[in-house]
Design a protein around this nucleic acid. Structure first.
Lengths: 141, 141
DNA sequence: AATGCTTATGAGAACCATTCACAACTGTAA
DNA sequence: TTACAGTTGTGAATGGTTCTCATAAGCATT
């Protein structure tokens, strides 16, 4: 059994379980997302998905991404400049460093910062629903 | 001498100093910005500016906001949902809490968080050019 | 005050990412 | 295999923002 078939079967099972119909378009996009280690935008995901399954339309990419986002499978990021970029949800929450010169995205996490955020919100009578922390950076030389 | 005239003169001087032509549209928008204590978007600023000087067009609002942003007079924020929102640059840098129910914006600042950000970036070989920290919150009850 | 040069303006078209509308198609359960 | 609800591709619509271009206005110089 090839790896491809294996992942496809897993995805099929996951969709069935969630009561979402298994279509070739959805499988193609999910495969592309699973293989992506960067943070592609919808256009890029559309390109990649088309090379797996040519019948995928951009509208379906957007529709599927919304479904997957609601299901907690992917995260949508609105970094500065350009459209939304996506990544598959993985184990740990993290924030992002963006290289302002290359556009590269680096992930990081700080419990201390998260804790301080909670404290600040609490002191003002709020509780944090979610947050956005992006460091726009330049490589030191 | 009325207060209005006084601020108008100050703004006129500031524009002249920066080598930017003084127009009634720019004065109107700057007055509106100076009076705003919230974080209005371009449409809202256009509404307010029109009530001061009816000839202000939306295009000019956008153009002027860009000029003022480049000059460091205003900050542009891209919070989740809807268009950009603006505020006049004041003394201290700060981040934002957004009430997810009301859309209200609260400003806060944490030296500790800023310091941790620097440390994290430095450890990864980067220096922070600017950052974005937004806490999407709900009022505690 | 009139001149001339340059920049700013209003109106509406253009843009771009994203969503929508709808008729055709397809997955799924019976 | 059928029937029906969920999904799809296409192309049009949307909404915020920027652009184009002819006209208007600011400002330094007479």
């Amino acid at each position: 059994m090839s790896n491809e078939t294996e992942t496809t079967e897993k995805m099929t099972a996951a969709l069935r379980k969630a009561g979402i119909r298994v279509t070739k378009q959805r499988l193609a996009l999910m495969q592309v997302l699973a293989e992506a280690s960067d943070h592609p935008d919808a256009i890029e995901l559309h390109e990649r998905a088309k090379s797996v399954e040519p019948s995928v339309s951009l509208a379906t990419v957007y529709r599927t991404l919304s479904v997957l986002e609601e299901g907690g499978v992917v995260h949508r990021h609105a970094f500065e400049g350009g459209g939304a970029r996506f990544e598959t949800t993985h184990e740990e929450h993290h924030d992002h460093i963006l290289d302002v010169d290359t556009g590269e995205v680096i992930e990081f996490h700080s419990d201390k910062i998260e804790q301080l955020q909670e404290e600040i919100a609490r002191a003002l009578g709020y509780e944090v629903v979610h947050h956005r922390l992006e460091l726009y950076c330049r490589k030191k030389r």
